[in-house]
Design a protein around this nucleic acid. Structure first.
Lengths: 345, 345
DNA sequence: AACAGTACTGGTAACGTTTTCAGCAGACCA
DNA sequence: TGGTCTGCTGAAAACGTTACCAGTACTGTT
């Protein structure tokens, strides 16, 4: 038997209509379950759809309809377990409202950020959730401004772009609590390691850190501040530097969950025992923090809730919400074995 | 000059053409840098584009062109750090060839898997990379079969669907090495905890496990096999059960990096010291494994390479490669402090 | 009986692109 | 001079939908 591999280039509505012996527009009505369509027509069309193996073309549909029912999500770092939860929370919420989500990651690269915004804009997404890699980059701001669709920022404030809603974390509150706790344990030489100062979470954490010192009338140990990037290698390098100081810190705050890995590597390399030689607090409760020996105290937050909040804000704008709004999710300090009173010699 | 800030509801090529005083088709030619277009025309059109603020509509373009230059990636679990690396590897490779990637996650839910395949198909993606949650689910197979575009499976073999390329991990080799190592340390009561048996990695790991026992003429301890899901809670529950046995294991193999978290929780709760009371090997080198006390031996593999391989296979098919191919990435055993000789009483 | 409304259907013009086809210069060759 | 060729451009037909506008056949009201 000779197979005629007609590739079946995918049947269209036109062929469905022909097969059912009805008009093209009737098929469309059935598919979009328009109110005014008879039982008979319903069956006829559905049978024809099954018969020819019709598959809707969302490109054509979106083009005509003028909306894609899709929102974009640009994650700055997929490998951060926190983002996975944010994405999850957002996706569930969007699903409920019939939107689907396309996820892209910028790998923390501002240029990719820019490219992704542009790409999604050209794809005509209906809305965008993102957490830009650099709040001040002109190119990013320009791309965002060209976007007519609603935007929700996650833990970012982009200078000169005030038409977006945003969901913030109370980083300063969390960091203040963490710092106060260390101070109350007697620590004074407390180091803070975090990402680039151009990011809101970093600025906020620093604020909280400074506030804790201020309320006690103490000087912030400026020489122990290290801002670079939210990466394990930076955490490792910064920690190694700090340990090598003449007057090294007695406690370290790791402002970012990926940093923690690096910090721990450096402490291990430097033969410092966590909790014993040096106290440690990190941000975001990842398995590593919980299962480390000793377990590591963290400033935690509900990432799923963040995603949910972001999606809700976006849906609000999509539904015609006129002015941007802001949501804030709280942080809470989880105390574990890594924070101990300062040993007095 | 008075700036007329008309909101410019997105200029189209038509308006560019009008502004430049040329034909629509000429604008198109310039944009797709067609060979036959004069210098003058180039400038004229580009000026007009800048003037009216034109932005290409990829929906229309894809519809007309018949291809989206986009491949889909369905991740079964975004929160698995391994997937992040696979995605990274794939995305980089695809980028080079001018394809972009849309990422979705199925949360390990077979129904979502199915829905995502259907959605992407309707979006007319040019190809698909995925790792289905359930290899035997008829619905998934049906959805995949309806897809005319090339598919690459990651660590999965779908029964009755042989038109896809695939990238496999040498799980059986890795697991065999791990098992042999434990046997050589004197362990005989070795437990294996892994995901659902309907997944290739689980089957392969079991094969390697069994092979190691077989070559020594030993019986596989059937009562110590636990297959359920790749999740922390399952790892915890299975481990707790194993510890409660009359003749508990002296070594545990965690066949999945998310399982490890649960296994460690259960061991902690059961007051067992890793390496001392019980030896432990996990799969995939995550920070938790490296930084645990003691560090945990793992069967590792290069996840970025997996993504790269998957993308390469897909690109091959997209370029007209007629028949599906298979790539295999190796595993290697990293020995650390969690595996110790069996203590003799 | 005339009219207005209701329930349904068909035809057709968009949506914003790309691609084919034909046309028009001028150049080159014989 | 006539001819084909080459470089460039414009017009128009797709791509697969949805939405609008009529039109038809009933139903109910006065």
């Amino acid at each position: 038997m000779k197979h005629e591999y007609v590739t079946m280039k995918g049947a269209t509505m036109k062929e469905v209509a022909a097969h059912a012996g009805v008009a093209l527009s009737s098929v469309s009505r059935v598919l979009n379950n328009h109110p005014d369509v008879s039982e008979a027509m319903q069956r006829q069309v559905h049978d024809a759809i099954a018969a020819v193996g019709y598959e809707p073309n969302l490109l054509a549909s979106s083009l005509r309809r003028g909306s894609t029912e899709t929102v974009g999500f640009i994650a700055s770092d997929i490998s951060n377990p926190l983002f996975a939860e944010i994405v999850l929370g957002a996706e569930r919420r969007l699903d409920e409202s019939g939107y689907s989500m396309v996820l892209t990651n910028s790998e923390g690269n501002p240029e990719r950020d820019e490219a992704m915004i542009r790409l999604l804009r050209r794809r005509r997404i209906d809305g965008l959730i993102l957490s830009v890699a650099d709040e001040d980059r002109p190119g990013t701001i320009a791309e965002l401004s060209k976007l007519a669709e609603p935007v929700v920022l996650i833990d970012r404030e982009v200078s000169g772009f005030h038409t977006a809603s945003a969901v913030f974390t109370d980083h300063s509150g969390g960091m203040r609590a963490a710092s106060e706790h260390l101070l109350s344990l007697g620590h004074r030489r407390i180091a803070l390691i975090s990402g680039a100062r151009s990011l809101r979470p970093v600025r906020e954490r620093l604020k909280g850190f400074e506030a804790a010192f201020a309320t006690r009338g103490l000087q912030v140990p400026e020489d122990l501040l290290r801002f670079g990037s939210f990466s394990a290698p930076f955490g490792q390098q910064a920690t190694a530097e700090l340990l090598a100081l003449d007057d090294p810190p007695t406690a370290i705050i790791s402002g970012g969950n990926l940093l923690l890995t690096g910090v721990l590597r450096a402490l291990q390399a430097g033969q410092r025992s966590v909790g014993g030689d040096i106290s440690l607090i990190s941000c975001d409760d990842v398995p590593l923090a919980e299962l480390h020996t000793p377990p590591i105290s963290v400033v935690d937050r509900d990432a799923v809730q963040m995603g949910d909040a972001a999606a809700s804000l976006l849906l609000d704008l999509l539904a015609g919400g006129d002015r941007p709004r802001v949501a804030e999710v709280p942080t809470h300090l989880l105390l574990r074995g890594s924070t101990q009173p300062l040993a007095v010699d």
